[in-house]
Amino acid sequence: MRHIISVLLENESGALSRVSGLFSARGYNIESLTVAPTNDPTLSRMTIVTTGDERRIDQIEKQLNKLVDVAALKDITRGGHLEREIVLAKVIVTSAQKAELETIVKAFNGSLITVSDTQCIVEMSGSSEKVDELLKSLASLTIIELARSGVTGLSSDESSLTA
């Protein structure tokens, strides 16, 4: 099962490596990991996408909680939640393909940034599933470079994670 664990982390040097070290040392999967400061400058918010059965996820949460730099955490997939990922894809596009590409991108609420006569960058944000779908729709084009941000997310109810 796929889980999204949202972690409030003390904004200390080395905090990120404590988390990534824990995952590698104990053999836990990381599908993606994002981290950035929050509105409280002393805290960063980390979003980890991982997989495992209930017992493993329970252990991951407990082991994360043991880290002194972890202030709070929540598996947001246990309730209603919002997940977003940004994708940037640089593609080769001929003038004949341009209109079709514009239609696809519009359908995904994305945007197109022109790089040159033959290349442009597709930009879109959405759930990982939506990003996968967009990339499937671009299958007929040559993707030169792809950058995905990894998932970030929030619970979609009135609860909030606080330190």
């Binding site: 080395g14 070290g21 002194v68």
Partner: peptide, 14 residues
């Protein structure tokens, strides 16, 4: 030192 000891300490500081 912080990196090399990280897996075997409860916590560490630089």
């Amino acid at each position: 030192a912080v990196g090399i000891s990280r897996p075997c300490v409860k916590h560490n500081f630089l």
